[in-house]
Design a binder for these strands. Structure first.
Lengths: 133, 133, 133, 133
DNA sequence: GTGGTCTAGACCACA
DNA sequence: GTGGTCTAGACCACG
């Protein structure tokens, strides 16, 4: 049973949820490089979703170089995820900068912004027992 | 000419862009309480967009109590935006906390996170010539 | 009636033939920037092909930034094709270099390679009455 | 260890890659007439590929008269490759002429086309230390 | 067994 | 009207 999850009631397209889910699992290291993906039919059966929808998601994942396909064998997590990691790291920092700038522009005091950030980091640290400085 | 802006090529629906745009303008004080909105037809003409789309956006804005409509007179920004401001302020801080925590969890050093935030604030300050402490 | 052509008996996938066809028409200037594409349903009817197949082709064209889509309006040739042109020019020269190297490696005399090239250019010139030096 | 090479990630079928690889090796004289091919099982083991795939490739090679099979003895490069050489030589020159003409038609200056060709020949020469005039 | 393509037909949101 | 998503079911090539 795979770790890929989907919410049929969400208005974000199923195939996109799958793409995001796999990308996330790969980034978080829950799916390792060169690990085999569930087959199109298997995942379709598990999620009770049409195989075409899975296929579409896998196609998009391949285009984004998050997985690769071997003829007749199946799909696999990409061997090298560094590009993906870098992109993701940039996206995170970009989102953070956006949030901060927008909060500031909406008149939230700098002190409150900074306090929010440091508290968020503290609780994150708490949840994982791992510090990075 | 109104301040409302729309990107036709974006995949987010035009009516939603209008809703977001007006909400943002109201929150940032660029549209004042009880100020009159551009008429549906005027805005449609200005943005080169189907009037039905504007109508839909105004309907949604009214539903969210960001604007109110006076029969035969037009649409107006809500008189009391405090609820909206509070909600929005919370949402901003929530997003900020989320992104900060996620960045931290992905191993980005605290120093880099804090630097990103303070730089974002600095550039925002630069762009608007308005300080809030 | 559009200029897009497809060969149902070819083993190259229909959707890919459409992608190639449109790319080619755009490169050759037969479809101009911001020109509207035939609608998915219209092209499907004209080519006697399932609309889903057209949709897939248009999706790929959009990913390659050869066309863009406006919500509710249709698909259009990209406004700026310079990137496409550059890529294509590089691909042409790369293929040419490959051909020449392979011919040489297979023992074909340099003189014959050069003669083949200059004759090919001469006949191309003949066909189009346009010289470029 | 044979000279036959295969890229498992390529979308061109493995059996076809093998056919192309052997054809190329034969044409370039790296596999001599009547030379014995690696056995199906040996090649399968070396390339880490399903023996059925090798079998299919050998079948196709035999059909194209590039190899012949002796019952119980194995497969061998064809004794007479002149026909193959001629065909291939023509194909190479044809592709070269085509690409040169197409480059010219797309407005690439003749000087650049010729430079590309001569440089490709030079690098090919460099790589193989063998001149043919 | 695997992925990939295609058809037929439906439904939805947007303009 | 437009594009976009999804399902159901079929067929094919590859390994």
């Amino acid at each position: 049973m795979s770790l890929i999850r989907v919410d049929l009631r969400s208005r974000v397209p199923i195939f996109e949820q799958i793409v995001n889910s796999v990308r996330d699992l790969a980034i978080r290291g829950l799916m390792k490089p060169d690990e085999q993906m569930p087959s199109v039919r298997a995942l379709a059966a598990e999620l009770a979703i049409n195989p075409n929808t899975i296929q579409k998601a896998y196609g998009e994942l391949e285009r984004q170089k998050i997985i690769y396909s071997l003829a007749g064998r199946g799909n696999f997590i990409a061997s090298d995820l560094t590009g993906l990691m870098d992109t993701h790291r940039q996206a995170l920092l970009h989102a953070l900068a956006n949030d901060a700038a927008q909060a500031y522009r909406h008149g939230i005091p700098v002190a409150e912004i900074e306090k929010t950030v440091s508290e968020a980091i503290r609780s994150a640290n708490f949840g994982e027992e791992k510090g990075n400085d």
